[in-house]
Every structure is written in structure tokens, then in C-alpha cells.
Simulated scan of single mutants.
Amino acid sequence: MEQILNYISIGGSFALAISGSLKAMGKKFDPFGILIIAFVTPVGGGTLRDILLTEKSVFWLKETPYIYFIIAGTIMALIFRKRLTYFHNTLMFFDAVGLALYTITGVQIGIDNDLSFINCIILGTLTGAFGGVVRDILVNEVPVIFHKEIYATVSIVGGIFYWALARFNVSNPFLQIAPILFIIAARILITYYKLAFPSIYGKK
């Protein structure tokens, strides 16, 4: 399980690095700025998670493959930037993939540390969504999870789904694949159909 979780997490770092790169390129950042945004997007949530777990070292300081895959994702985004015709859709897809992979990683780490149900879900949501918060702040945007757009909710529901499967001892690969596909599909469909929570301030 630990090895599978590591692969899933590294895959998430690659996807979120591309997502961060695309966001930075949309803001006309220089290559160094793109690399910085590409780095904080995948590691922001996991870093906060590991700080909260006082007995755990920050993951990317111990596991250098994360850094290599982040760099690879950044380079890939830079090389193929002119071919990304549907810029917004591409950003949305990689963001959804990263959200899914990192959410279940966070929940599983909570399970491994014998945390309560609610704390496992909090760790999953932090791991999946907080990097996007840091990214949006650095590019001078209001983080998407603070909008009425449904983002963190998808992570929460997907995390609950994964936690329930794990508790019922569902075997691999369905244990990981089902929640990952659920989060990706839900996030894409919600964005495509522009579903959102109603604003408490009413229509402008």
C-alpha cells in the first residue's frame, strides 16, 4: 500500500505541476516564475499536512522524485504550450487529476496515523486543495475554493468515498481507482456545466 500510495502521490505532483505551469503562463510569468508556481501547487497542501503531523518529515525533502517530476511537468507544459489549444480545459483537467490523486493520498496518510474520520477527511482536503490556494494567491487571484464554485466539496466527498472503501477493506486497484475517477469526473462535470453553490449575497 505504501508503494502504491507513493506512486499515486508522485503522479499527482506531475499533474499539479502542469496545472500550476499553465496558470503561471496565463499570467505571462517568466520561466523562473512558472517554475515557482509549478512547485508550490503540488507541494503546498502536502507540506501543510506534514507540518500538522509533527512526527512526519515534509515529504518532498525526503523524496527527491517529487522534485524531478515537478520539473518534468513544468518542462512538458513549456514545450507543449503552443499546442494547448483549449487552455482552460487543459488546466481544468490536470487540476482535477491532481486534486483526485492528492486527496486520497492525504486520507490514506490520516488512516495510517490512526486519525479519526473527520481528521482523515481534513488531511485529504488540505493535501488536495491547499496547493491550489497558494498558487492562486501567488498569481494574485482569489482562491477558487473561496468562490461559490464547487471545488473543496468534491475533495471532501471523494475523500469520504475513499475512507469508506478503505474501512470496508475493498481491495486494490478498485480501492484507489474508484475514488480517483469519481473526483476527476465530478470536478470536470461541475466545471463544464458551471454548477455552483448559491451566493449568500444574491445576484449582482
Rank of each mutant, 00 (worst) to 15 (best):
G73A: 05
T74V: 09
I75R: 09
L78C: 11
K82G: 06
Y86T: 15
Y86P: 09
F87K: 11
F87W: 15
H88K: 12
H88R: 12
L91Q: 12
F94T: 10
F94M: 05
D95G: 00
V97Q: 04
A100E: 07
A100G: 01
L101V: 04
T103V: 03
T105P: 04
G106W: 01
V107N: 07
D112G: 13
D112W: 05
N113W: 09
N113P: 15
D114C: 14
S116V: 11
S116K: 07
F117A: 05
N119E: 15
C120K: 01
I122T: 13
I122D: 07
G124Y: 00
T125S: 10
T127Q: 01
G128P: 07
F130A: 03
R135N: 10
L138W: 08
N140H: 12
E141P: 08
E141F: 04
P143Q: 02
P143L: 04
V144M: 11
I145H: 05
F146M: 08
H147Q: 12
H147E: 08
E149Y: 03
E149R: 13
I150A: 06
I150L: 05
I150G: 08
T153E: 11
T153W: 06
V154Q: 09
V154Y: 04
S155L: 03
G158V: 06
G159D: 00
I160K: 08
F161H: 08
A166W: 02
F168E: 15
F168P: 08
N169R: 12
V170T: 13
S171T: 12
P173K: 02
L175F: 02
I177A: 12
A178W: 13
P179S: 07
P179G: 07
P179M: 03
L181P: 06
L181G: 13
F182K: 13
I184R: 02
A185T: 15
A186F: 13
L189K: 11
I190K: 08
